[in-house]
């Protein structure tokens, strides 16, 4: 199965909702851009039924260059984590396939 991308999402908006192709493409683009902008402003995004995009601040920690073994600190950073909602978890859990994604 090929991966779902923005163009298939736009195609569905065209087919199911009758948006024209330009509008459909723009809405899909805005959907992801608004979520990014929000996270960039350090605000969590909660999409009920799907999941939450949370932010975590990580402090500096020791690391290593895996090639040379040299010790280098991993700088403090903010990362995005996704916590799937109950509904999505239940739907995905039911997937019986075991082939690698």
């Amino acid at each position: 199965m090929t991966a779902l991308t923005k163009s298939e999402m736009a195609e569905r908006l065209f087919e199911e909702l009758g948006l024209n192709k330009r509008e459909a493409k723009e809405i899909v683009e805005l959907f992801f851009e608004e979520i990014r902008a929000c996270l960039e402003n350090n605000e969590q995004v909660k999409l009920s039924g799907f999941g939450n995009f949370d932010l975590r601040d990580k402090s500096q920690r020791p690391g290593r260059n895996p090639k040379t073994g040299e010790e280098i600190p991993i700088s403090a950073r903010r990362v995005v984590t996704f916590r799937p909602g109950q509904k999505l978890k239940a739907r995905v859990e039911a997937y019986a396939g075991t082939e690698p994604q």
Binding site: M9, A24, V92
Partner: peptide
């Protein structure tokens, strides 16, 4: 409607074992 359709499309894809790449 568009936002709900996008989220349903994404959920459906994962429920069928698919990947999403943005």
């Amino acid at each position: 409607l568009a936002v709900k359709t996008i989220l349903e499309h994404m959920s459906e894809s994962l429920a069928c074992g698919g990947r999403i790449e943005i």
